[in-house]
Design a protein around this nucleic acid. Structure first.
Lengths: 220, 220
DNA sequence: ACCAAATGTTAGATTATACTAATATTTTAA
DNA sequence: TTAAAATATTAGTATAATCTAACATTTGGT
């Protein structure tokens, strides 16, 4: 295991590579809120440690070793989030920052006990899959709520953001993981959607919000 | 709040000052397992930050600000230990190292919730008092088991060591916080003692062990 | 009261992680 | 297809936290 900083780079590279495959130095700089040369030198260091493959002016990619380390951190983060929600009764919108710190705790015992207390969960409070202790993760193909057509019915499976402001927004709209919803109306002009919630309520979402919600479509 | 390293210095200065009042650079170096010049320069830095009072060749002493910071870390450490034992069912001998990491977690919410779940406890699993959220700590005068005379009866109140090997030893002897014991025999030669446990068992302890156990004497 | 032992400080080097300023490469768009 | 824009790298600097080697002060025993 490397330093806290190294762990954060590895984690960010992993997160960004889920979207784009290859990760660019500038993306990393933006995500980690440091300047380009800082990322550049760190990436070179990670490369000498064989955690990433890197060629100048090309992107960065995690090696097998790097990916393993990333998944270990992701596992700890997601277990921590679920623990904070399920065992400690905190809200899903407030656990991210605490989990960012807990994910660096180095103790098999601690995390295996959390896993056990949660009965070996498969997903965190945001619906993201939790890698098992061997680093295996269930990849799920995802449909965005923003892509559904009028009349379609789906179940909210996950959200693409951990940010408090986003989750506060969903709380205010009373949307939760597991909720069944049906698209009533999709506006051509701005792609905003009106959906019917199982509770009977009608909920209006902008496209910006809808595209960050992953769903499992129910084929009638 | 300072860096993790700073927090560890403050915590160690606090711990050592409980014994000696003033803390010497060499003691700190031994405790933190770094060399003297390292401590020297860090102590100077802490002094410019007004966390310690320090004059060259004299000892180090926490300022009010430093003491407040120390107590906040001690509070988090002890709450974490009790949480790990009571809520997560880990053994008292294995929680120290995890708590050393958790004590640096920066989240009022997290620690207030732990405090609440534990019902605002007064002592950690080793019997050490937990400062409240204002940094108030109950100081207790302590008698060492090693100082009791034959025939005296007492209740084990705390242990002076967090180290796994010591706690494993107590586990093996089946001694716990809260146990009532009576001194059967105290050897003049090596100060080892034989005590009677409430369970009826006779237990032999060397002075080295006995002096690390704090008791509350029962006046008959 | 003095010198040796114990303890503490200074000077200078090293590594990790960051920065700014200058330079180089790649991509894009006219 | 070439110049501007976007992106990436290098060079040089800074700070935190550590070290070793050399030097300074304090303490304790005769």
């Amino acid at each position: 295991m490397g330093s806290l900083t190294e762990e954060n780079y590895i984690k960010s590279i992993y997160a960004l590579s889920q979207v784009t495959g290859e990760v660019y130095v500038s993306e990393l700089a933006r995500k980690l809120e440091v300047k380009l040369p800082t990322v550049n030198s760190m990436v070179k260091r990670l490369a000498t440690k064989k955690l990433v493959a890197y060629a100048p002016y090309k992107g960065v990619r995690l090696t097998e070793r790097g990916k393993k380390e990333a998944l270990s951190i992701v596992r700890k983060h997601r277990l921590a989030e679920l623990f904070l929600v399920k065992i400690m009764s905190l809200g899903w919108e407030e656990v991210h920052d605490i989990a960012e710190q807990l994910e660096h705790v180095n103790s098999e015992r601690f995390y295996n006990r959390i896993d056990e207390m949660l009965n070996y969960p498969k997903a965190d409070p945001h619906g993201e899959p939790i890698p098992d202790s061997n680093g295996k993760i269930q990849v799920q193909k995802r449909t965005s709520l923003g892509d559904l057509a009028e009349g379609e019915t789906a179940i909210i499976a996950a959200v693409a953001e951990d940010e408090k402001s986003f989750l506060d927004h969903l709380n205010a709209k009373q949307l939760q993981i597991g909720d069944r919803i049906t698209i009533m109306k999709k506006e051509l002009f701005d792609n905003s959607i009106t959906l019917k919630h199982k509770s009977g309520k009608k909920i209006l979402l902008t496209h910006q919000v809808a595209e960050r919600i992953w769903v499992e479509v129910i084929i009638p």
